[in-house]
Write a protein that binds this DNA or RNA. Structure first.
Length: 826
DNA sequence: TACATACAC
DNA sequence: CATGGTGTATGTA
């Protein structure tokens, strides 16, 4: 990837402040977005392709420094593909630079590029002058497709900038950038205070942890493979309509999901808004997504993966993690050979021989001479050792050769069955395989042979899990750009990051999975944890009017409830997400007293979270449900509600209850003073909002966990208000009043339904709770909104937590009023 | 627990 | 004119 290499150097070396804007990069090299991780219905049927059926006809093999690259066939190969990063293979000059930058004497004490500033004194201009601008452009990915560029990188930058610079989005990005900049300043001042003794002890700690991680995770024989479908969405479309292949083409809606390689030549990228894409490439052809088709293809590929690793993990529709160790071992044995044993290559700290590195030592392949001793002591009979060594290397080569042919076969089969090409990475850990899968796409594969040389010059950003922000912190804060530098500055990591994060970074720097943080991509041992949450969110043209916002909320809740019903989920925790028209994001969460699942329940609780935030002008709302009710797996027979309640307390009783709908009266709903409305099924969006207080919501929660039903009925009951979670030790009539007041605040239509018109307004906020906002009444009356009243500019002032029972009126920050009444998009 | 952030895709 | 949606995890108070 000569082109890629050039761009990376561009990024790394070009500190010039030639641009007067910075822009955050969202996603540099993902091919696809918008792919939710649909349930991987991994079957356990392990039909197995014969290992001996390996394709032995790889067309292209390029081997250097232990890395091997395969190409399916040159005819199938896209033109954009080119050489791999050669700088990683050419240590001398690059290595020198690296060493000098990271030698202890340089890394401590830290020199700081800009004068010490407290975070509060930062301003855009000052930050601007010290900025590595190029990191912050959006959509300027350095992937293949740019090397035959019809548009130069500079041109793309200019166009993107032009289209972005006056947008609210852009301003929001700048705000976020400032925050990150403050973080970096904090990091730097922390580093300034790092004493040499402390640095040494941190380094020792880092080395201890790394040694432990090496021992626990380093493998030399595990065949980890990451398979990734190329430009997935567009590839599927192109398969069905080959003419699309020849023209710049993308799949997406308002935002590009995937651009084909033609379009990428123009700078069109995933996550790029369509209007910018059109500026870059006016003739761009855009289609909307056809998820069913992609899903079908994904399932076809998964059937193939299962043949090689029944425990494979699907990272997404277009990505899978396979452990081919067993398969490859079997294949090697089938060839009448003997796979190398683990003992033949004991794990060794990767960068440990620093002195060897600085003197040009490049790793295992250089097993002759003095450097080799660092990787495996050669003792005793030298000649015998050499013979043994050679035999090992032969078996080694054979082993990985088989692995590469297996992966090639997998890719060939994928292409044959689905018509879509795939790229793959092969390595001894998944994080390395993941990095490698990007080395040689499209339609190529890459094996990490010599880990040290692969990582030495690898930009930290290539590590899955190190994103834009972390990269910036590492580069600007620690002057760390490559994985090797990450390792070399490990003491600093332990100083500025939490031990957990530092450990994780350190592990990645040497290509180790694990390290404490759970990697969503890799996952420990292929364990699949059930889903933790489910959410729906929607962007729309900015809205201010209360009834408009509530309408959106209802639609979202309807949709979420449908999804939850489909999966049989009931949740106890709800999070409301708001994005104001200026792109500031706020979340508000609450625990519900009881599990909720219906649209009505979701709506009531979400409303309770939303109302204290009003007035706001929003462009997005979302609701997330989490803390699910445990699924009734093998429900214990004969154990009724009561026993469960007594045995394990209220929670267990909740869990044991039959699904909604059956008898569950605890407190009479009719006692609320008005007729119960609406049965179970009705969709919320079909009628006006209705208040429904499920009988379930009003169950008494006794004075303690040990309380039984019997005692509850005898004592003064303690109720939990279903909306505000307040525990009330009151008579039922008093409870009813309380609930009414909660409802009054959470449902603007309540009064219309319950009271004569006249009495509405003055009565809205009487229940002893702080009014959400003085304007509520006006809002409900469809008055047009003043906008200048809420500009609460206090940055940095910590928000007080909102006690669920008495939410403060807390308008969103950066409220920019808007009276836009455009038709909504939902 | 609640909230803000970061990340992947 | 105009910048997405779903899910996971961590840091912090």
């Amino acid at each position: 990837m000569a082109g890629q290499n050039a761009s990376m150097e561009d990024i790394v070396e070009n500190d010039a402040d030639e641009e007067d804007f910075f822009f955050t990069q969202t996603q540099e090299d993902g091919d696809e977005v918008w792919e939710s991780d649909l349930e991987d219905a991994r079957g356990r049927n392990t039909s197995s392709a014969s290992p001996s059926a390996l394709g032995a006809n790889s067309d292209t093999v390029i081997e250097r420094s232990g890395h091997t690259k395969y190409c399916l066939s040159s005819a199938e190969k896209k033109a954009v593909h080119s050489e791999q990063n050669t700088s990683a293979l050419r240590p001398p000059d690059g290595a020198d630079a690296v060493i000098s930058r990271t030698s202890p004497s340089h890394s401590f004490p830290r020199s700081i590029s800009s004068p010490q500033k407290t975070a509060s004194t930062c301003n855009v201009a000052a930050l601007d002058s010290t900025r590595h601008r190029r990191h912050f452009y959006t959509f300027l990915g350095d992937k293949a497709g740019m090397d035959e560029k019809k548009r130069s990188r500079e041109e793309v930058e200019r166009i993107v900038h032009e289209a972005s610079k006056n947008s609210k989005f852009f301003l929001a990005q700048q705000r976020n950038d400032l925050k990150v900049q403050e973080r970096i300043q904090v990091m730097q001042s922390k580093l300034n205070m790092l004493s040499e003794p402390l640095r040494r002890s941190l380094e020792a700690e880092a080395d201890r942890e790394l040694a432990a991680a090496e021992k626990a995770y380093r493998t030399w024989r595990q065949v980890c493979v990451v398979v990734d479908l190329d430009a997935f969405f567009t590839s599927v479309e192109e398969r069905d309509e080959p003419a699309l292949r020849e023209v710049p083409f993308a799949v997406g809606g308002g935002v590009i999901s995937t651009a084909n390689y033609e379009a990428r030549k123009y700078g069109v990228r995933s996550a790029m808004p369509l209007f910018i894409a059109r500026k870059l490439c006016p003739q761009l052809l855009v289609r909307s997504t056809r998820f069913e088709a992609y899903q079908t293809v994904a399932e076809q590929t998964r059937a193939i993966f299962r043949d090689y690793d029944p425990r494979y993990r699907a990272g997404s529709l277009d990505e899978a993690y396979l452990d081919l160790t067993a398969y490859v071992h079997a294949a090697v044995c089938d060839q009448g050979e003997e796979p190398p044993t683990p003992e033949e290559k004991p794990g060794t700290p990767l960068f440990a021989p620093v002195t060897a590195l600085s003197s040009g030592f490049t790793g295992v392949e250089d097993s002759e001479g003095e450097g080799g001793a660092a990787w495996g002591a050669m003792g005793g009979d030298e000649e015998e050792e050499e013979v043994r060594e050679r035999a090992i290397q032969e078996r080694e080569a054979s082993y990985w050769g088989v692995a590469e042919r297996v992966v090639e076969e997998i890719r060939r089969r994928i292409h044959g069955v689905t018509g879509v090409t795939a790229s793959a990475g092969i390595a001894t850990s998944f994080c390395l395989a993941k990095m490698a899968s990007n080395e040689n796409k499209p339609n190529g594969q890459f094996r990490v042979g010599d880990v040290a040389s692969f990582l030495r010059d690898a930009p930290v950003r290539k590590v899955s899990g190190i994103g834009r922000i972390t990269e910036r912190c590492l580069v600007a804060g620690l002057d760390v750009q490559t994985c090797f530098q990450l390792w070399a500055n490990r003491a600093l990591l332990y100083h500025v990051y939490t031990p957990q994060t530092a450990r994780w970074l350190l592990c990645k720097s040497v290509g180790l999975d694990g390290g404490g943080l759970v990697d969503p991509e890799e996952g420990p041992g292929g364990q699949r944890t059930g889903r933790k949450g489910i959410s729906r969110e929607r962007t729309f043209a900015a809205l201010s009017r209360k009834e408009d916002l509530l309408e959106k909320l209802r639609l979202i809740c309807d949709s979420l409830a449908a999804d939850m019903a489909r999966e049989g989920l009931k949740a106890k925790n709800l999070t409301l997400k708001l994005k104001s028209s200026d792109f500031a994001v706020t979340t508000r969460a609450k625990n519900c007293a009881f599990y909720v699942s219906t649209s009505q329940e979701l709506y009531q609780h979400a409303l309770f979270l939303l109302l204290p935030q009003l007035p706001v002008t929003l462009r997005l709302m979302g609701v997330r449900a989490s803390h699910f009710q445990p699924k009734p797996q093998a429900p214990p027979k004969g154990q009724g509600c009561l026993e469960a309640y007594v045995a394990t307390g209220h929670e267990a009783a909740m869990a044991e209850r039959p699904p909604s709908g059956s008898a569950k009266k605890v407190a009479s709903p009719s006692s609320l003073g008005r007729p119960p409305r609406l049965g179970e099924g009705g969709s919320f969006s079909t009628g006006p909002p209705l208040i429904v207080v499920d009988a379930d919501l009003l169950s008494p929660a006794g004075g303690g966990k040990e309380a039984t039903r019997a005692t509850v009925t005898k004592q003064v009951p303690v109720y939990t208000c279903p909306l505000c979670n307040q525990r009330l030790s009151v008579a039922l009539s008093e409870l009813n009043r309380h609930v009414d007041s909660c409802l009054r605040e959470s449902d603007p239509y309540f009064l219309e339904k319950e009271m004569p018109e006249e009495s509405k307004k003055g009565d809205v906020h009487r229940a002893g709770r702080k009014p959400c906002d003085a304007e509520d009444g006006a809002t409900a009356n469809k008055k047009s909104r003043r906008s200048e009243n809420v500009n609460c500019s206090s940055r940095g002032g910590k928000k007080k937590k909102l006690p669920p029972a008495r939410p403060d009126a807390k308008p969103l920050e950066h409220f920019f009023g808007s009276n836009s009444r455009r038709p909504t998009t939902m």
